[in-house]
Amino acid sequence: MDSSEIVVTTVRVQLAKQNKTQKQLAEEIGMDPTSFSRLMVGKRDWTVKILDKMARPLGFHSSAALFKILSTPTFVAA
């Protein structure tokens, strides 16, 4: 699983937990839903700025908490 797939999986899991759509998250972080969709299917690269904006809406206390989850070896190995 590459880093982009890890981000996408994390986003999908967190959205499901919150019963939220990709469109809702995109709008919350001030991003065009179509552009966000391109991220989710791998047609655009994730940036630290986007990850930082998503952290709190996804339920993380900070972007550092999100980055920690994304770099956890057990999560990466899953």
Rank of each mutant, 00 (worst) to 15 (best):
F67G: 00
T10D: 00
S37H: 11
D32G: 07
A77W: 02
L58C: 01
V41H: 04
L39N: 02
S4Y: 07
A64N: 12
V11F: 00
A77T: 14
V13P: 00
N19G: 09
L70I: 05
V48S: 06
R56T: 15
M54K: 03
V8D: 02
Q22Y: 11
V41K: 04
K49N: 13
A64D: 11
F36R: 02
M54Y: 01
D45M: 07
S71Y: 07
K20H: 03
S4L: 12
A64G: 01
A26E: 08
M1L: 11
P73D: 09
D45F: 04
L70C: 03
V11W: 00
L51W: 04
E28Q: 13
Q14T: 02
R44S: 14
P57H: 11
S4G: 09
N19M: 09
A64C: 03
T34L: 05
M31Y: 13
V48C: 08
L51F: 07
V13F: 09
T72Q: 11
T34F: 07
V76Q: 11
V41T: 15
K68D: 10
K68S: 08
T34C: 10
G59H: 07
A16I: 00
G30A: 13
P33K: 13
L25K: 10
S63W: 09
V7T: 10
T47D: 00
S37R: 09
L25M: 10
P33G: 07
K68E: 11
F67W: 06
V7L: 05
A77Q: 11
M40A: 06
V7Q: 03
V7G: 01
A64I: 13
A26S: 12
K43N: 11
V8Y: 02
S37Q: 15
M31C: 11
T21D: 00
R38L: 14
G42H: 00
G42K: 02
V13L: 07
G42R: 05
K68Q: 10
K43A: 08
V13E: 13
K49Y: 08
T9Q: 14
E27S: 12
A77G: 02
Q18T: 05
K49S: 15
S37D: 08
Q18G: 07
S62G: 10
E28L: 14
E28S: 14
G59N: 06
T47N: 01
D2T: 14
A64R: 09
K53V: 07
M54E: 03
F75K: 05
I29F: 11
S62F: 08
G30P: 06
N19F: 09
K49F: 12
T10F: 01
F60A: 08
V8G: 00
A65T: 14
Q14P: 00
F36S: 02
L58Q: 04
A26R: 06
T74L: 08
R12V: 04
M40G: 02
I6Q: 10
E5I: 11
V13T: 14
I69L: 13
T74Q: 07
S63P: 00
M40S: 02
L51N: 03
E27Q: 12
I29E: 05
K68G: 00
V8Q: 10
Q18W: 05
M54I: 08
L15K: 00
S63F: 14
W46Q: 01
Q24L: 09
T72N: 09
T34Y: 12
